[in-house]
Each structure stands twice: as structure tokens, then as C-alpha cells.
Design a protein around this nucleic acid. Sequence first.
RNA 1: GUCCCCAUCGUCUAGGCUGGUCUAGGACACCAGGUUUUCAUCCUGGUAACAGGGGUUCAAAUCCCCUUGGGGACGCCA
Length: 479
Amino acid sequence: MGKRRYRYAPSPTGVLHVGNARTAIYNWLLARHYESTLILRIEDTDKERSTPESEKAILQDLKWLGLDWDEGPDKGGDCGPYRQSERGHLYEEYQHILLQKKRAYYCFCTPEELKQQREELLSQSLMPQYTGRCLKYSESQVKIFLNQNKPYVVRYHVLPGDPVIVHDQVRGDVKFERETIGDFVIAKSDGGATYQFACVVDDALMKVTHVVRGDDHLSNTPKQLLIFEDLGFKPPVYAHLPMVLGIDRKKLSKRHGAVSVGEYKEKGYLPHAFLNFLVLLGWSSETEDELLEKERLIKEFTEKRLSRSPSIFETGKLDWMNGQYIRKLSLEEFYQSELSFIEKEYDLKRMDIKWLKQVLAVLQTAVVKLPDICKELEIFFEDRFHLSPEVKKEFQNEDFKKVLIGLKEFLEKSETSDFEVIKKSVSEQTGAKGKNLFMPLRLAITGQKHGPELSLVVPLLGYKNLKKRIEHTMKELGL
RNA sequence: GUCCCCAUCGUCUAGGCUGGUCUAGGACACCAGGUUUUCAUCCUGGUAACAGGGGUUCAAAUCCCCUUGGGGACGCCA
């Protein structure tokens, strides 16, 4: 058995969507698991909608996820070019073979005629496939039309015969009667190949052995199988993945919220957390473990445990997963991941990096999504220190006031930011303890009811800031 | 409409191929309790599902059929 060749073939007509990203991830995982080749092919046969920007963006998103490939437009390889727009001559070549073998024919029907035929069939409760109307033209008649420059497309002609069986790694054998297939277009009126045709020629010429793609292609597969056969190529092994749907069980779209990889990057999810989450949408580990590092995924991922039913893209678990991965990060990794998000709201240049890292260490368990850090960071910056009316109200409590005054007096005579010392002294002086001691201290020092342990926060604030904050608090309370 | 696919807790899923060990397991979310000065983290516990009907069988979540529901395809989109 030779080396397998997998491929991921995106259309550069927009951003990378989560469903497509999952397909890419599965192909990548399979290729790496079987120590095989992964080809990246750009399917830009739709000249209207394909753009170089979109291709670039998709490649970027794939890389962000941590994927790589062995052959592709940016990598080269023996089976290039890897953009369908650059392979027109190949499609033409094979189109001629089909035409010559009479397995394809010219169709001169106009879009209006096609539409009419379609409606007619539909009204008769039939599958609206092409009627084969242009099959009736003799060779000489076709020549006349061609000489007249009559617009045409080339259609593949499906002959009657045995049912076409798709041997699918996730579905099993799926049978399609030939009558239900209908003659489909392989060359558009501008001469360009359609997806159906380009896909077959490329998969054959690129020696692809395994095609893993969305379920929406399952009913297209018999068509492709027919072409493979007529062209004398051996078809690849197929695996059709169930769709990823929105919460309403409809096709995932923008109205479901964020559905592109880029959006999740911006929201502050770790690439591997997002990848891990996506992998579990349609696949499970034999161990039922869910937090799986890259190495384990590659080791355990096979087509055998792919699920057959569609899954709903619901990101609740993603948040939990992201938090888990954030907590696993080393301090340095956490710092690096957070940098770009902190930068958006704070002036990094004026910060001591060593101090910032210490602060981050204290906050690591409080972050679910990377940008959460900005809010958490607030208690460490003077310009963000303020007392909300709610906090002020807390100080109507006389015991709280007493602690505040005790703290102020202590700081005036002792220059320390050791929380243990502060706590002990204030407690002794005021007699407060437990919640009645900690809460007023927390409120006076951070201005917040909640936050990390004071014993960690206070030293990071330092004596000067501490004193400033107490004075600020006293002033705001009019004491 | 026709063809094809799918159907286990709210969500992701295990189990189904090779019926009994499934009074259906795990995870997220949710609820309760514990830890913590508070919040977060962490720990413990709980609520919650085999779409419906028929069959096969001593026995069905597991096999078969039907119904229902959902999705996809039927494009000079991919």
C-alpha cells in the first residue's frame, strides 16, 4: 500500500468558516496520523467570486490553527499548479476526451429555457434534472451552431446502466440510480471547467487517494465517479462528513453569530483550544478524553470514529475548554498570548514587564477568553481606581470605617506592602477579623468587591500606591 | 416535488457493526454543597436523553420496516 494523499480544497470566496475549518483539520489530522501527504488546492473556478485576498486570508487562518501542508500554491509540489484557475489547459484536454468519446455533448439551451424545463419537471413531481434536449442535434447541426458562435456549455452524458455506488468511509455504501443523476455541466459558457469536472481531473492528476469533505458533496460523488471511470482513473476513497449546523439546526450562517475562524481569533480563543473544540464536533477519542493536545490528536485520530450525524455549533464548551488551556499555559506563553489584547487598552511601553508578568500570574485563573485580562488588570492601575456608589455604601458600616481608619494610621507609621503584616496590625488595632476585616481592606485597596487574594495583590501594588489609594478612598468618603 | 443522508440528556458525545454486563456512561452548561476573606480556580453531588409506532427475539438504545422530524443534493456555486 502506497503512501496516502489527502487534500483540502477551499474556495477563496470568503473567509474560512468553522465547518470548512473542521474539514481542513480532519484532513490534516488524517494526513499526519497516516504519515501521508496533505495537498492544499485552491478551487477558484468561480471567477466572479474568487479573490486573491480571500485566498490569503484562508491560508492565514489555517496557519493560525496550527495546520500545515506539504503541497500547495505557496509550497509548490510535483502536481502543480495548485490553483484551478491555472489549470484550465488540463481541464480542456480531458473535456475533449469526453467529447470525443461521446460521453459529453454540447448544450445550447439558454438559461430561460433551462428554467422553464425545470419548472415543468417540478410541476410533474419529478427531479428537476436536465432533459437531454440538446442530445437530439446531429454533429453537423452542432457544427453550424458552433460556427454561428451560439453560446453553449458542455454536459456530461449519463448513460443508463448499473447504479453507481459510493463506498464511503463514514456512510458505508450509498447507491444512486443513474436516472436520478441527470446530465450535468462540465464546461461553462466561458469555457471554464465547473467544480464537478475540475475536481475530478485534479484529484486524479494530483494522485489523491483519500477525499474527506462535507456531506453536501455526497450526492455529487456519483457524478464524479462516472467521470473517473470514463477518463480511466482510479477514484479515491471517500469520507463524507456530517454538516455543522446552527442552533436552529439550519445551515450555519452569519445570522447564527460568529462563524468564521477569524472571529474566534479576535474574540481571544487560543488556536489549539478552538481546534480541539472543532475536532470534537463529529469525532471522539476512544478514551473519551476531551482535552487533547496536538500529539495525542494525531496519534488517535482515524476515520473509524467519525460520527454520522450532524452536530450543532454551540460554543458553550469552547469557553470552558479555552479556560482549561489558558491555565495550562506557562507564564511566558500566557504573557505572549495576552500581549496583543493588553496593548489595545493599556500602554505597554510604560509598564515594567517583569511586574506585568507577576500580575499575569495572579490573574491566570480568572481569564476565560484572552481579552478578559483587560478588565482583571484594572485593579492594578491607578488611573482606573475609583469607588462605585455601591462600594461607598458598604462603608456606611461603622466597622468597615474603623478598619479603613486603622489601615490609614498603620500605613502612616509603617512603610510596608507585606499584606500579612498589614492584616495583623489592623486586626489587632481594630479588633476586626474574618470577613469584617478582609472586605473593608479589599474595598479600600482595590475599589472592588471581588478579586484575587489580597496577599498577592498588595505586594504588587507597592507601598506608595497603597497609601495613595487609601487617601483617595478616605477623600471620596469624606473622612 | 424527487433522490440521498441523519435521529441518545439543552449542547458535544459513549454505547449500536458483534442484541443481554445500559434501572444508558462521560463532558459542557445549569442547580446544590465543600474549599477560599471575596471572586475565579479546584473538589463532591444532583437534575436531564434512547423521536413515535410496528416487527424479529427468551431479550432491542442496539437488527428490520413504517411514520414523523431535520439536513443535503437536484446551479454555467463550490
